[in-house]
């Protein structure tokens, strides 16, 4: 692979890897604190899948560059601006409905994303991984959609909480579908789908689920972005201090 192609693949793997790692981190924060024991089982399970995806993607990425010899270097030892995740996934959890709606938006997006990667991607390792990731992400989307409907439709209070969640998430959705320069290049090279190409399917499915939960999808505008360029929210630094604590406090140790 030529250097510019290597750089492109590496960047793409980081973007998706970071999305999964950071959402996995946030989801894992629920462990032991969920509203029911079933959810205390489901949320760590989903976090396990997401962090597992990140690990798999980083391990493909490090094979491309000689600067790295372990996926943990990517997960734990980058500076804030070197993480390329969406702003959506780094936001604090808020209440259960907020966490669920974020998971629903993200996993529904990723379901269509992986589906396209599994069909069109030129890079065999990612194409193969996409088949497994598609199945797991479809499950996350289904699980969270059921809760979105349940909470939206449940009681007056739960509907109000879900309205809050819809409004909390709204500024961060546009970034999911933003076609930046990288997105155009990677699409032209048959690497990753264009984010905007996922919008139609995503919107249809999300609207349908929200409607069953007596909720509406607001108009999607690009309000907040920057994550893909490494420009993160203030709270992201705290997330990293948690995530990186051991690797920073005890450098060069084996665990």
């Amino acid at each position: 692979m030529k250097k510019d192609m290597v750089d492109m693949v590496f960047e793409g793997l980081l973007r998706i890897g970071d999305d999964n790692l950071i959402l996995g981190h946030r989801t894992s924060e629920w462990c032991g604190h969920a509203p029911t024991l079933e959810e205390d089982l489901a949320l760590p399970n989903i976090a396990l899948d997401l962090i597992g995806h990140a690990q798999a993607l980083y391990s493909i990425a490090i094979q491309l560059k000689s600067d790295y010899n372990h996926e943990d270097q990517l997960a734990f030892l980058r500076l804030e601006h070197q993480y390329k995740n969406l702003l959506l996934v780094e936001q604090e959890n808020g209440h259960f409905g907020n966490t669920i709606l974020r998971l629903f938006y993200f996993s529904t997006y990723m379901k269509y994303f992986w589906e396209q990667v599994s069909i069109n991607c030129f890079f065999k390792k990612l194409k193969e991984f996409a088949e497994k990731a598609f199945l797991e992400t479809s499950y996350h989307s289904k699980y969270s959609s059921q809760w979105v409907i349940t909470l939206g439709d449940g009681t007056e209070e739960s509907n109000k909480k879900m309205l809050e969640a819809v409004s909390n998430m709204e500024p961060f959705i546009g970034e999911l579908f933003d076609n930046d320069e990288f997105a155009d290049i990677s699409f032209k090279n048959k690497f990753l789908p264009k984010p905007s190409s996922i919008f139609k399917n995503w919107e249809k499915e999300v609207k349908n689920v929200l409607k069953k939960g007596k909720l509406n999808l607001p108009e999607i505008l690009l309000k907040k972005n920057g994550g893909r360029k490494g420009e993160h929210s203030e709270i992201f630094g705290f997330l990293l201090s948690d995530l990186q604590y051991m690797q920073r406090a005890f450098p060069n140790s084996k665990w």
Binding site: C31, G32, P44, G52, Q55, Y58, M246, F250, S253
Partner: peptide, 19 residues
């Protein structure tokens, strides 16, 4: 210790264990 586990491998094992 899930969010502070020192490596991805340890984090995944701990998540699986707590689950």
């Amino acid at each position: 210790w899930i969010t502070r586990a020192p490596t991805l491998k340890r984090k995944l094992s701990l998540l699986a264990k707590v689950q």
